[in-house]
C-alpha cells in the first residue's frame, strides 16, 4: 500500500510541471499564437525560482521569481512575434535556445548547492491540486466566460475579431504572458519540488513534451490532465522498472517518454478530420492590423 502511494505520489509530481506548462500553452495556442519557447521559459523559471529561494530561503518567493522569469521571457517572445510580426516558429526556437544558454550562465553558481523544498502535506505539495484547479479554472474561463470566448474568437479569425473592434494584439499579449507565467511556474516546480536542486538543462525536454500534450489534448484543458498524468506515469514507470528489471538498459527506459510522445502525436494527428476541426484556425499566423 505504501509502495502504491509512493508511486502515485511520484507520478503526480512528474505530471504537475507538464500539466502547468501545457495548460498555459493551451491558452496561448487558443488565441492563435504558437510559442515553441516553452522549454526556454521553463528552464528560466527553474533557475530563477531556485536562485530566489536559495537566497531568501522562501519557496514562495522562489515560485514568484519563476513566474516573473517566465513572464519576462514570454514578453520578449510577444514583442518579436506580435509587435514585430517575426516568424513564430523561429522565434519560439530562439526563446528556447536563449533560455537554455542564459539559465546555464545564471545557474553556474547554483550547481551542487542544496535546494529549498516546497512544503507538502503527506508528500502532496500545494501545486499538485493547484495545477488541477488551474485546469478547471482555465476550462471554465475559456468556455463559459465572455473573455474566454474572445480568446477563442481571436484564435479562430483574427481578421473578424479585429473588424468587430477587438484588440487582437492586446488579447494575444495577455495570453502569451499567461503562458509564460505557467511555464515559469512549471520550471520553478522542477527546481523547488520535483528535484529541489539546480542542474543544467534540468527540464530535459519537458517543455517540448508539454507542447506535444497540447496537441494530444486537442486544445481541450481536461484532456491535458489525462495526458500529463499519462506521461507522468510513463516516465515514473521507466525509473521504477530500471530498479527492478536489470535486463533492460536504462537508456532505453529513459527514452520511453520521448518515444511515447512521438507515438501519441502520430495517433492523434493521424485523425486529420478531428485535428482540422479542433486546431485554432489562426495558429501561428501573423497579424498586422491594416489602417
Amino acid at each position: 500500500m505504501d509502495m502504491f502511494y509512493a508511486v502515485a505520489l511520484t507520478i503526480m509530481t512528474a505530471a504537475t510541471p507538464l500539466l502547468l506548462a501545457a495548460v498555459g500553452e493551451l491558452v496561448v495556442e487558443r488565441s492563435g499564437v504558437l510559442n515553441l519557447g516553452v522549454e526556454g521559459m521553463m528552464i528560466m523559471g527553474a533557475v530563477c525560482g531556485f536562485g530566489a529561494a536559495f537566497y531568501t530561503g522562501s519557496t514562495g518567493i522562489g515560485l514568484i521569481a519563476s513566474i516573473a522569469a517566465g513572464v519576462s521571457m514570454s514578453l520578449l517572445f510577444g514583442f518579436l512575434t506580435l509587435t514585430l510580426v517575426s516568424n513564430q516558429v523561429a522565434t519560439g526556437l530562439a526563446l528556447t535556445l536563449l533560455g537554455l544558454g542564459l539559465s546555464g550562465l545564471i545557474g553556474e553558481g547554483f550547481v551542487g548547492q542544496p535546494g529549498v523544498k516546497l512544503w507538502s502535506v503527506a508528500g502532496i505539495d500545494p501545486l499538485i491540486p493547484g495545477a488541477i484547479l488551474l485546469t478547471a479554472a482555465v476550462s471554465y474561463f475559456l468556455f463559459r466566460s465572455k473573455a474566454g470566448l474572445v480568446i477563442r474568437a481571436v484564435g479562430d479569425s483574427h481578421v473578424s475579431a479585429h473588424s468587430l473592434g477587438y484588440n487582437v494584439i492586446a488579447v494575444r499579449y495577455l495570453c502569451v504572458m499567461f503562458g509564460g507565467a505557467c511555464a515559469g511556474l512549471a520550471g520553478g516546480y522542477l527546481s523547488l519540488a520535483y528535484t529541489p536542486q539546480w542542474v543544467e538543462n534540468m527540464t530535459a525536454g519537458r517543455g517540448w513534451i508539454a507542447l506535444a500534450l497540447v496537441v494530444f489534448a486537442s486544445w481541450l484543458p481536461w484532456r491535458a490532465v489525462v495526458g500529463a498524468y499519462l506521461f507522468g506515469a510513463i516516465s515514473i514507470l521507466s525509473y521504477t522498472v530500471q530498479t527492478f528489471a536489470l535486463g533492460i538498459p536504462s537508456q532505453f527506459l529513459s527514452s520511453l517518454p520521448y518515444l511515447v510522445t512521438i507515438i501519441a502525436l502520430v495517433v492523434i494527428s493521424g485523425n486529420r478530420a478531428m485535428m482540422r476541426a479542433n486546431t485554432p484556425a489562426c495558429l501561428g499566423k501573423p497579424f498586422v492590423p491594416d489602417r
Binding site: L36, A212, T261, I262, L265, S269, G270, R272
Partner: peptide, 8 residues
C-alpha cells in the same frame, strides 16, 4: 500521419 515535425 500529419504529425508535427518540430516535435517529433
Amino acid at each position: 500521419f500529419n504529425a508535427n515535425e518540430i516535435l517529433t
